[in-house]
Design a protein around this nucleic acid. Structure first.
Lengths: 153, 153
DNA sequence: CCCTGTTGGTTTCATATGCAACCATTTGTC
DNA sequence: GACAAATGGTTGCATATGAAACCAACAGGG
């Protein structure tokens, strides 16, 4: 009897891609969170905002929301916290009084100058067992899944 | 000037594996959650418990916790909810009055008989753009990352 | 047997989360 | 221009979460 994909028999979560991928991503994310949570008191959301501002120099909350696919409120709260700590500066855009332009402060840049090399080093350790070829392939396949996901939505 | 992995220059979240992987897994997980959340009113945690019980027939809460790496409390609450809905049955183990043996009820089996083919079909659509080779490779690489993660912890 | 330490599971509590209502501003339309 | 619809961002609220406190039940010396 050939394997029957339409039946419920012999279903194994461990071989179910969504589950495997989610478990793995959760574990990685959580392990990495130690870097910025315990050592620099940053939430994941805050780290993402900082990293994007590092990359793009000046962004609005909306752009960050789109880039990270995080909830509106989550971004808002992360931004608030970062401003309170003096890591970013926000100022109403001259063109549109609703939007706020966000930028790193000097303190924010300093923090990232510490954080980014740490993050990179950690990633390097994580992917150490992969060959360059495998690593490239992984990113490639992930891209395909992302595109397919967009089509399914 | 060669790329400098120890510096903070030119850091791009989009190329940072932990972030990419987490984004992707979140999106997949959330999309899939529609299947069992909106259509069958099951949380992700509940679905995982059911799926494991389908696979292993009889398990204790602790075994589920180990298998899924979910929080103690989360498992406890999922089990409670599933029992309330009559999808699983729990009964104190004869050997040890502390542990409870969990099993699917007939209703639980029926639900899975619906749910699993749906989940499989959805996964199949998701991975449709991947070749068999790529799919195998992906699982393989994920396994390597999991093992490396275990070493780093 | 106690008495201590462990272990499986539940509950409590403080926090994080997402949705929806909201406010202020801008845009479009007549 | 004025009024309706839309848009960026914040806040309130109800729920989900994880850590730690907790409660039985077991284990194992003495």
């Amino acid at each position: 009897m050939p394997p029957d994909h339409a039946s419920a028999s012999g279903f194994d979560l461990e071989r179910f891609l969504p589950y495997r991928l989610n478990s793995l991503a959760d574990r990685i994310s959580q392990a990495l969170a130690c870097l910025y949570e315990t050592r620099h008191d940053l939430s994941v959301a805050q780290w993402r905002v900082l990293a994007w501002l590092h990359h793009r120099e000046e962004m609005t909350a909306k752009q960050i929301r789109e880039a990270t696919r995080m909830d509106k409120a989550k971004v808002s709260r992360a931004v608030q916290a970062l401003e309170d700590r003096g890591l970013i500066r926000r100022r109403p855009s001259p063109q549109d009084q609703r939007v706020q332009d966000l930028r790193l402060t000097a303190a924010g840049k300093d923090l990232l100058a510490e954080l980014i090399p740490e993050a990179r080093a950690w990633e390097a350790e994580l992917v150490a067992p992969l060959s360059v070829e495998e690593y490239r392939e992984l990113l490639d396949v992930m891209g395909k899944l992302e595109r397919q996901l967009a089509r399914l939505e």
